[in-house]
Structure formats: C-alpha cells, structure tokens
Design a binder for these strands. Sequence first.
DNA 1: CACGACTCCTGCTGGC
DNA 2: TGCCAGCAGGAGTCGT
Length: 273
Amino acid sequence: MPELPEVEVTRRGIAPHLEGRRIEAVVVREGRLRWPVPEALARCLPGQAVTAVRRRAKYLQLDTAAGTLWIHLGMSGSLRILTRTAPPGRHDHVDLVCGGVTLRYNDPRRFGAWLWQAAGTPPPLPGGADHGLGLEPFDPAFTGAHFHAATRTRSAPVKQVLLAGDVVVGVGNIYASEALFRAGIHPARAARRIGQARYERLAGAIRDVLAQAIDQGGSTLRDFVDSRGEPGYFQQSHQVYGRTGQPCVRCGTPIRQLRQGQRSTWYCPRCQR
DNA sequence: CACGACTCCTGCTGGC
DNA sequence: TGCCAGCAGGAGTCGT
C-alpha cells in the first residue's frame, strides 16, 4: 500500500512521460473517490502542458499554467503509463490522456483523490495554505532538534505522532514500526518523554528506511510503462512489521504486536524502550 | 490545542 | 466447501 516510497517511485516513473507534454483529455469513468472528482479537471486541463510532476507528503502534484492537479493514492490507488490504448479494467476510474500516452488511475477501495487547485488559489486541502502537513523527511530542516521541539506538548504515543503527519510526513504504518525499531524507541512511549538525542536517531532511522524502500522500489519499478505497477519494496525484509512471535533480528526476543488507534504496531520488547 | 474514535471501500484471510 | 467476521491501509472529521 502506498506509503511515501511508493508515491515517490510512482512520481519518478510517470514524470518522464508527462513533463513537457500537453494534456489532451481527462476521462472520468467513476468520479466517486474520497471526494467527487471535480468537473473542473475536464474543463481546465485539456490544452495545458504539464510543467512539472512533484510530490508533497503522499500527494502527487501535476503542475500546469492553469493550476495544479493533486493526486492521492489513498490505500489502494496506483498509476501507470499506457503507451497504447487498452480497454479499461475493473477499478480503472480515471484516465489522463497526455502527449500520446495515457496515465491510468486504478483504485479498488476508492480512498484516493483527484483534486484541482486553480492557479493562484490555496491547495485543495483542509487548512488551506499549509494544510497542517509536517516537514518532508528529506528536508534538511527535519532534524532531531526540530522533532524534539515539535513534540514538547505531545503526550500521545510516539507511534501515533508519527502517523499523524503534522510533525513529519510520509511515515505510514509499516515504516513507523520499522523506524522505531531501528531507533530503539518503544512505540507506546509518550512523544514528549523522548530526548533530543533519541529524536536525532529516529529522524535518521526514518530517512534511512524510506530511502532504502525508494531504492528497492525503484529497482523493480524501472519497467513502469505498461507494467502493473507492482511495488518492489514489498519484498524488502521488514525487521518487525508483521513478524509477531518471530525472533528479533538483533536479540532473538519474540516480536510483539499491539493495537494503537485501531492499528497494529510491531516491536521488540527488549531492544525498544 | 491535543487526542482518539470513527469513517470512507473492497478484497483477502482465517476460523468454524 | 462455504460463509462471514475481521482486518488492512491513509487521513479527514468530529466529539471530548
């Protein structure tokens, strides 16, 4: 499921096919995504050239002179580039025809979103201009000092704060567990009760685990065109995620699972404090 | 402000 | 074998 690495790998896969090309059509077969796909897309995008394909948090942004198309993959969304027309399959909800290729959006659970930001208007997200998103994990400003300062009032478990996305973005359920394991921090520890040095390690662990996943996704997603978009990083060895009862890779203690906010977390009770 | 429960939806798994 | 409950995932929204 798309966490930041899959979104970034998708961005790298589609950007070369779209940047500098002109959008010919937007075909919406099923507009009932998380929010209705705006009719403005079919009205405003045709004729526009894609000037850049960017990413902010887990949103993809396709820039044009008229505005920016924001795409979120939700939990089951995927994008692929078709070089020749193929009949749409089940859950193929939206096509963007551009420069002779088709960007096709598939999303079985329809938790994703296609949103429109007209030039000069705020992002189409709640909260407007900054919409409460935290720092990018690869932003140089994302340091242990920042992490520490941003969590002084946070009594919630650190795992929950990671997922909330208002301190740092892009860390989903899988990589929250993985990063906390690498940093030796217990997922249930109150965020405000973690010191700056340990946040330094956590920030590094987040960058490492995401970068590794991007690399692995990139290596198997090279054939993005006409591929099924299978994310390669799923095959990476998770050290704790989904490993209930199996030995910790570091100390051999059985990995434990707990529920936090209706979500599973995995951790080593000995290595993580 | 901060927190946590709830919600959207479909497909897969596991237990009986 | 078939049925169905439960779970998975991201993140906005709402009540406290």
